[in-house]
Design a protein around this nucleic acid. Structure first.
Lengths: 141, 141
DNA sequence: CAGATCTCAGAATGACTGATATTC
DNA sequence: CGAATATCAGTCATTCTGAGATCT
């Protein structure tokens, strides 16, 4: 590999810039709906896995234990999910998505589809697939 | 495009995760040397463009006006760059890299090469090139 | 005067760490 | 007792906005 000439040609820099643009678009779209990325990830997990503990939810949604607590309580205040103590294990708080939460998730999912189109509009569908495959291998290290 | 099933298959999510892993590796490597990503970007720009105003430096290093000010003063305190008022325009502060700064940049550049290898080790060289090309087109929008 | 440059103060976000109380 | 769960406290890096001072 040639010595580094300019930082803006570094692959890590290109990755950082592309992700920053993606994040801006994603966040602007979700902010219009009054939601955060955390909100979407939590509702998305709950819709597919059903009721689960906050711990399991945090693992599945890739959220820190600190942030899962805050996010879940915010969503509970908006009646998008319900919480109740686990009768099997009093340490756990079981979380489940509500009907309102499912409608909210459907709304956010449409926004996410718009985001995908906006972010990857510079690429063809085939190129986007290639990129996704390479990114998936990078992300897991 | 199929309806969204799971957030962790979204291309924007893969992009975000890959960038997060890259950032962790980059930051850990720079932290060992007591430097930040801002530091490296500023020194890298100064080494290639020569002396310039803080404004031009901020544009080239993709740094906010707030952060260019803080970063430059920190690097000045470490004697890695020098600042002097522009005799042509008293509004400007001209910044130039010092010899010590060039040595520091060389050290950081070696670290950056290690980072590239670590981040992109899951991919072949050809795949990394393909990825970089796609990311470059994404980053500019 | 408008405009450019630099500085300071603060904030929002994402990701993370330490500590604590409770429970198994 | 050790281990797991949820919560509260704060940190850190990145990015950005508003305001003011100085100068062209």
């Amino acid at each position: 590999m040639a010595p580094i000439q300019s930082f803006d040609e570094l692959p890590t820099w290109l990755l950082s810039r592309a992700a920053a643009r993606s994040h801006r678009i994603l966040h602007a779209e979700l902010a219009q709906l009054g939601a955060s990325g955390y909100d979407f990830r939590v509702l998305s997990v709950l819709a597919t896995t059903g009721a689960c503990s906050q711990r399991a939810l945090g693992d599945a949604a890739a959220l820190d234990r600190r942030d899962i607590s805050l996010t879940v309580r915010g969503l509970e205040a908006a009646a998008l999910l319900s919480r109740r103590p686990d009768p099997q294990d009093a340490r756990r708080t079981m979380v489940a998505i509500t009907l309102l939460g499912q409608h909210r998730l459907a709304e956010l999912s449409l926004a996410l589809e718009r985001v995908q189109r906006a972010v990857f509009s510079p690429l063809s569908a085939a190129e986007t697939d290639t990129l996704s495959m390479l990114l998936a291998r990078l992300a897991t290290g």
